[in-house]
């Protein structure tokens, strides 16, 4: 069936069954491969996108449930020419090893900073509780998010 979803400010028609996970519509129909499969049951956070301001694991939500909502993926976080302060901070802190968790963590962090301009270390850790990193770059990621928050505040 044809479903219309709003992704990164544009309207897209997707030909898929209603129960198709949003993740596969984003990746395979819209080519937005920055959102990645990790577990399929909302336990690891690699597929995190922002839906109406909230971080959501897109592997666990059917595409029919997001019709009429605003979806933002990592591709719309910034551009090569104008990276989001979070992206700049991840590079500055070299906050990645393999980078497979990066997109989901960036989106969870974006959702946090949108509602909390000056998060504490505990706030950031709590916001990332649903995101796993297997390479062990956690401390760099925490530093990068604090750095980005400071940058956004203009501090």
């Amino acid at each position: 069936m044809a479903l219309t979803i709003q992704v990164n400010g544009k309207s897209h028609e997707v030909q898929a069954d209603a129960e198709t996970p949003l993740l596969y519509a984003l990746r395979n129909d819209l080519g937005l491969i920055g959102t990645r499969y990790g577990c399929g049951i909302g336990q690891c956070g690699t597929c995190t996108v922002i839906i109406d301001g909230k971080p959501v694991q897109s592997c666990d939500v059917p595409v029919s449930a997001v019709v009429g909502k605003q979806i933002t993926t990592v591709e719309a976080l910034g551009s090569d020419a104008a990276m989001h302060p979070l992206q700049q901070a991840f590079i500055a802190e070299q906050a990645a090893q393999c980078g497979y968790c990066s997109s989901g963590i960036l989106m969870a962090a974006k959702a946090l900073l949108d509602v909390n301009k000056d998060p504490s270390d505990a706030d950031i850790r709590k916001a990332l509780e649903g995101n796993l990193c297997r390479c062990g770059t956690h401390s760099r990621i925490l530093r990068a998010i604090k750095r980005a928050a400071k940058e956004i505040r203009g501090a």
């Binding site: 491969i33 992206q87 991840f90």
Partner: peptide, 21 residues
């Protein structure tokens, strides 16, 4: 020196075999 592969990974570019289409 900064890692050469990180910019693509934080901007959601195809970076992995999983991303090949």
């Amino acid at each position: 020196l900064e890692r050469v592969d990180i910019p693509n990974k934080v901007t959601g570019k195809p970076s992995f075999v999983q991303d090949m289409q």
